[in-house]
Amino acid sequence: MITVEGLTKTYGGFTAVNDVSFVARPGEVTGFLGPNGAGKTTTMRILAGLTRADRGVATIGGHDYRQIPNPGRHVGILLDASAQHAGRTGREVLTLGAKTMGLPASRVDEMLELVSLTDAESKRRIRNYSLGMRQRLGIAHALLGDPQVLILDEPANGLDPAGIRWMRGLLRGYAERGGAVLLSSHLLHEVEQIADTMLVIGHGRIVASGTKAELLTSTGTFARSVDDARLAPALQAKGVAVRPDAKGLGIIADADPQVVGQTSLETGVALLELRAADGAGLEDLFLQLTADTQRESKTEGVPA
Rank of each mutant, 00 (worst) to 15 (best):
G138V: 12
R165T: 10
R52T: 14
V4Y: 01
H189Y: 11
S82P: 00
I164V: 15
E92P: 01
V57D: 10
K212F: 01
I2C: 06
L152F: 09
G13N: 13
G61Y: 00
G39L: 08
S106K: 13
G202S: 15
A120L: 10
G37Y: 03
P69V: 11
I2G: 08
T263K: 05
K9E: 04
G163E: 03
R25Y: 01
A86S: 13
P161E: 09
V93C: 04
I46K: 02
P104G: 05
E110M: 03
R125L: 09
D228A: 05
G39V: 11
A270G: 09
Y174R: 12
P69W: 02
V240S: 12
D228M: 00
F22N: 07
S116K: 12
K247Y: 01
L199M: 12
E121W: 00
A195F: 07
A48K: 11
S264G: 15
G202I: 02
T42P: 08
I139M: 12
I46Y: 02
T267A: 15
K123G: 03
Q148C: 00
A38P: 10
V269L: 11
R224I: 00
F222G: 02
E214F: 05
S185G: 12
R125Y: 04
M167C: 08
G220N: 04
M44D: 02
L33K: 07
K238D: 15
E192I: 08
V302Y: 09
A229K: 14
G90V: 06
G145R: 03
L187D: 09
T51I: 14
Y11H: 13
G34M: 09
E92G: 01
R168F: 07
R224Q: 10
T211E: 09
A162Q: 15
P71L: 03
S82E: 15
R66Y: 04
V23S: 12
G97T: 07
S264W: 04
P161K: 13
T197N: 14
S21P: 11
T211G: 14
